[in-house]
Design a protein around this nucleic acid. Sequence first.
DNA 1: ACTTTATTAATAAGAAAATATCAATTAGTC
DNA 2: GACTAATTGATATTTTCTTATTAATAAAGT
Lengths: 144, 144
Amino acid sequence: MTDEKRHAEEAASQHRPRAKRRTRQRSVIQRVLLEANRPLSPHDILQAAQATAPGLGIATVYRAIHTMITEGLLVAVEIPGEAPRYETAGKEHHHHFQCRTCDDIFDIQGCLPAIQQLAPKGFRLEGHQVVLYGVCPPCTGMPA
Amino acid sequence: MTDEKRHAEEAASQHRPRAKRRTRQRSVIQRVLLEANRPLSPHDILQAAQATAPGLGIATVYRAIHTMITEGLLVAVEIPGEAPRYETAGKEHHHHFQCRTCDDIFDIQGCLPAIQQLAPKGFRLEGHQVVLYGVCPPCTGMPA
DNA sequence: ACTTTATTAATAAGAAAATATCAATTAGTC
DNA sequence: GACTAATTGATATTTTCTTATTAATAAAGT
């Protein structure tokens, strides 16, 4: 009856999972995102993380992304016509730049308060997003 | 030999297709886009056009979109996290508003020249896009 | 070290958008 | 009105991205 009793207790304790484990894969993924300091796609993350964690699978990347979003560590960055990227949460309001050569996304500081004036009468403005397009420093031939 | 001669002529004339036909379906699709005066998704177009052209298929909508883009009558409008919409070409530079209630996209007149200052040093700025989010007049309870 | 079970890697499956296929239809021409 | 080929409608297929499955692995507690 020991098993049954334990099961009953677990059920009573609202199906509490043992605990979140701190795995090597998840640590590597987190570090990759912190060091990149710009939005990365799941594939970007996989590529970068595999340097430190060989054999890492794409499913694990997606699972880690979901977990980290739930924990408030990551936010999704949506760029027109592109699959979502992800970057570390907590940054102050900012926008993004997409390089037309390498397709990478970069953070852009600053905003335009005047943007509040663009909404026509009758439209309730709740938020906005600015995306700049062009060529990033590396792709223009600059060292870094 | 009449047939062979005609074929030869056609081949010589660079495989010229007989002509673009002005079909009922394509006319209806074009009218829908003109009257909407805002970006529509292929599904939006299908829905609206079926009122006038019962039995219209989604494939025809996609084909018409491609044709019209090639002819310079339409342009694609990409909104973050959304499938592309399409609107009539030739409008002057403008941006878009997405309603968080109905997901519809609306044209927004005006722009922000100061946006040119947002690109950091080293980034070659070639274009930009602004998307406003909020609630459109109909969804706020306004008649129209 | 041993046990438990959350986590992983590999891959199948799913979801959504767009395209290809093909017999039937129809616009444009004679 | 008849003819020819572009076009259509219905549907299968492809493509891309994401999630589910499952046996094997490996954290964390004892």
